[in-house]
Simulated scan of single mutants.
Amino acid sequence: MSSSTSAVLRPQQNRDTAFFWEGTAAGELRVQTCNACGTLRHPPGPSCPECLALDRGHVVVSGRGTVFSYVVHRHPPVPGKELPILIALVELEEGPRMLGELVDVADDEVEIGMPVQVELRRVDDDLTLPTWRRA
């Protein structure tokens, strides 16, 4: 692993999130679904927050959404990133909300309700991160 990718903060991957990271590596944005009641949820977890069932699956979503909220991260420094960083809470067309970096947009251009599209950025052989860009 090169020093440029080893400096990147890496998300936790476990049995609850494996499907998500396998999806990003395959070029898909996946959201967990409850096989019992159909509820979509993110972040993924072991049981459904609606019906408490443990029967979970996933669906591939469109990757389209709108900015629900955002922050401009100016400090402290983040390994592997240049400040400022825009972090958006995106409401997906399918309903769930997902956090991620908003790229190629100036911090004074971001607006609540702005349409965005996911872009899956490959960091290295083991990590592909979802980022968001203006649609």
Rank of each mutant, 00 (worst) to 15 (best):
R122P: 01
I87P: 04
L86Y: 02
A18V: 05
R97Y: 08
A18Q: 13
S3V: 13
T33R: 14
V71R: 05
G80P: 13
P11M: 08
P77W: 11
A135F: 08
M98Q: 09
A25N: 08
D126Q: 06
V61W: 00
R122G: 00
P96A: 10
P96H: 10
R134M: 03
L83Q: 12
P11W: 06
Y70D: 03
P79Y: 09
V71D: 07
G63E: 01
G113N: 10
V110I: 15
F20I: 10
P79M: 12
V72F: 14
D108K: 07
E91F: 02
E28F: 06
D125S: 10
Q117G: 14
Q32T: 01
L92E: 00
P77I: 07
R56D: 03
L92D: 01
L120T: 08
E82C: 04
V116H: 05
L102Y: 03
V116R: 01
D55A: 14
L83C: 15
S69Y: 03
D16Q: 13
T66N: 14
Q32M: 06
A7H: 09
P84F: 03
D107Y: 11
L86P: 02
R56I: 11
R74I: 01
T17F: 05
R30Q: 05
G65N: 03
N35E: 15
P43V: 15
D126P: 04
F20K: 05
T131L: 12
L54W: 14
R97L: 04
R133K: 15
D124A: 06
S69I: 10
L127T: 04
R122F: 00
P77N: 07
L52A: 13
A7G: 10
D104Y: 08
P130Y: 07
F20S: 03
S3P: 12
V31K: 00
T39N: 09
E28M: 07
L83D: 15
H75V: 07
G100R: 03
